[in-house]
Design a binder for these strands. Structure first.
Lengths: 331, 331
DNA sequence: TTGAAAGCGATACCAT
DNA sequence: ATGGTATCGCTTTCAA
């Protein structure tokens, strides 16, 4: 049997309602009393019972994160960040990797205050799944008008990268990425590339869309290998993901290419990982901390029942790095 | 405001204690009454309030899974499986990817019934972290005598694979895997290989320990590429992980090697994924369903306060596949 | 400033 | 077979 406020009250010689107030740092309790109570609570290893609290408050101070597509580890970093931020606002985070329906059911029973869904982006989610009164925030491409969505502007990210390379003199720019039409995320990125290439068309410019079989390191390696052994050499590569970039770099190393003197590289990732490349690669995308920050803010607003925008798009930025050189520095 | 048993009671014209019984399918309620109540509950979209229930029962029917090392997606499949099995026993599962200490703190406040920790296997966990009365089950290499552990016998798995290859005539058998001394899991596997190779030593046999830089597909690809282009060719390869195997197969395809006529392959994985190889690869390890099953059983026993073994080691098995051939079939 | 008491939603025991 | 009621741990009025 664990320690309750009554045990503390007995020890401290006060009523248990005083203990409750003291522990919640209420101004209605005198400082010395408060201190005494907090000390005893610590000694006894008191842990508040969330069940009891949420029963009376009708709030659990907990938000649920649904992440059904664990396969891609991309969001892991983001989720960790979100957890940290919410903790600063004294909210707990619960995670579920179940299907959305069953996850929502579980969360419902725990009287969760709000839910964040990490969109799957392949295949649709049935509207019927979202039978709940708990507010939901969706992270991913907007598919429903039912609840607010946060997403990042992938198309503009890649466009931005392409235009940057053009600005520093590149004309033969390749895009390495998943070119199948299954994943809307990947389609967006490709479109960003094409838009920039078509607008700033010159006689020398040509599209180099290099397809991969997936988004693994090895896919980037193979794509780069085949692209770079081709005679019509490119002067710059835009990579569709962090992992692809890692593969591309392995390929360039193997081929003895120097970055950025032989080849410029920009990597897409709003999913920066701690691991380091050999060179500090120039990246484009929305930084994780900003996404996390926005998600938390929105979440808290939703809980407070403030008005929030129904669709929030975060705009990317180009990070500094040393994997890009102006075309003049080359022959 | 959500629906409570009192609302149902009013609608049905019975007392709310009867509703409670009916909803829990108690034999103390007559069938027609029960049916009526259940029907009304459904119509009203009743969701039981876990907080209230666990408050009185001192049980939450929820188990917490701590998985701090999200980086490796290996356990994802296992966790999903465990979740499913527990659901069959009407237990919910909550997941945390936070550090163990903070995860335990959260779980504690939710009055969770038991915790499973997925061991990190790199670096130690501080004993002090485990300040909790909630029973803990540890999955990974045993480091503590404080709480029960479940693990798989990796060493014997690889030994088994090696001996099998020897039995069907192979002498030049390579092991491709992470050969650094950081990860105890990987060390175990290597030892299994060495044990078998040393015991069944012949004049022709020789160790082929091929190191990789990690456990990604590309690592397997590179290792296989360098091994197989060597003149002292091997007749069989044992792969240290599923992803390595995928890379090895890409390498053999590229080199035009036929499996199993040119080369036999056995892959270690207790982490079988749904994705298919080109060939049906022979695998060794403890099948995921068996691990999940054992973890759930043990968990439920712990909750029932039954006596359980302090250390459970699951023994591997060799799956059938068509990536191995006897050495006689080759020149 | 502190204490007493009501009540959150569900369960379980004791009466009918 | 059904109803009444105490109870779980805590927050929150309302009194003192």
């Amino acid at each position: 049997m664990s320690v309750t406020i009554k045990d503390i009250a007995k020890q401290a010689g006060v009523s248990y309602s005083t203990v409750s107030k003291a522990l919640r740092d209420s101004p209605l309790v005198k400082s010395p009393t408060k201190k005494k109570i907090i000390k005893i609570a610590e000694e006894l290893g008191y842990q508040p019972n969330i069940a009891a609290r949420s029963l009376v408050q009708k709030k659990s101070y907990t938000i649920g994160v649904i992440w059904p597509s664990v396969k891609r580890m991309a969001p892991a970093v983001l989720i960790t960040k979100i957890t940290d931020l919410l903790e600063e606002h004294s909210y707990s985070t619960l995670l579920s990797i179940n299907k959305i329906d069953s996850a929502i059911a579980t969360f419902n029973r725990f009287q969760i205050d709000a839910i964040v869904v990490f969109g799957d982006n392949r295949g649709t989610i049935h509207h019927s799944s979202f039978k709940t009164k708990v507010p939901i925030l969706y992270y991913g491409i907007k598919e429903h008008t039912l609840f607010p969505t946060i997403d990042v502007n992938r198309r503009f990210a890649i466009k931005m990268a392409t235009e940057y390379l053009q600005r520093i003199g590149h004309q033969r720019i390749a895009y390495i990425g998943d070119l199948t039409d299954e994943d809307p995320l990947q389609i967006e990125k490709r479109l960003g590339y094409l838009e920039a290439m078509n607008v700033n068309q010159t006689e020398n410019s040509k599209h180099f869309l290099v397809p991969t079989n997936g988004l693994d390191i090895h896919d980037g390696y193979q794509a780069a290998k085949s692209l770079l052994s081709d005679k019509q050499s490119v002067t710059a590569i835009i990579s569709g993901s962090y992992d692809l970039t890692r593969g591309i770099l392995r390929a360039t190393t193997e081929l003895g290419l120097k970055i950025p003197s032989d080849l410029s590289i920009i990597s897409y990732d709003n999913i920066t990982l701690t691991e380091e490349f050999d060179v500090q690669v120039t990246r484009v995308g929305v930084p994780i901390p900003r996404i996390a920050q926005k998600i938390c803010e929105t979440l808290l607003s939703i809980i407070e029942e403030d008005e929030i925008e129904n669709s929030i798009i975060l705009e990317p930025e180009l990070s500094s790095g040393d994997s890009c050189a102006t075309i003049k520095s080359r022959t």
